[in-house]
């Protein structure tokens, strides 16, 4: 199996792990959200890679073309992107509220403030 032939999958996995790593290690809530976005975006790339059919073109019916790429994953990913946007929006709204009530968006400091209550 040629590793290079699947480079888009490797990119997706690399992005996924990067995003996951950011979520795990960064205490800043905004950075966590960015990591989460990276993570979900990588899945979009994974899906779109699945849709590619070797030698296929865009799925628009045109004369002389026999092979099309699968359009369904694109449709699905449109939905998933909407979901991702909504998640980010809710997340950012929560971060704003947290900043309002705690005065910080660092998880360590938030925790200290709660514990000292």
């Amino acid at each position: 199996m040629n590793i290079g032939a699947h480079y888009n999958y490797w990119v997706a996995i690399f992005l996924m792990m990067t995003g996951f790593y950011v979520v795990i290690t960064h205490g800043n809530l905004i950075k966590k959200l960015i990591g989460l976005n990276l993570f979900t975006t990588s899945v979009f790339i994974l899906y779109i890679s699945l849709a590619k059919v070797k030698g296929g073109t865009a799925p628009i019916i045109a004369p002389g073309i026999e092979v099309y790429s699968n359009p369904l994953p694109h449709v699905l990913i449109l939905t998933a992107i909407v979901v991702g946007v909504a998640t980010t929006a809710v997340g950012l709204a929560l971060v704003l509220l947290i900043y309002d009530r705690y005065g910080t968006i660092e998880e360590d400091e938030i925790r200290l403030k709660d514990d000292s209550l």
């Binding site: 989460l36 979900t40 998640t87 997340g91 929560l94």
Partner: peptide, 10 residues
Amino acid sequence: AFQYLIMGTI
């Protein structure tokens, strides 16, 4: 809620 959001999204 934020924690749940991160975990739930993952």
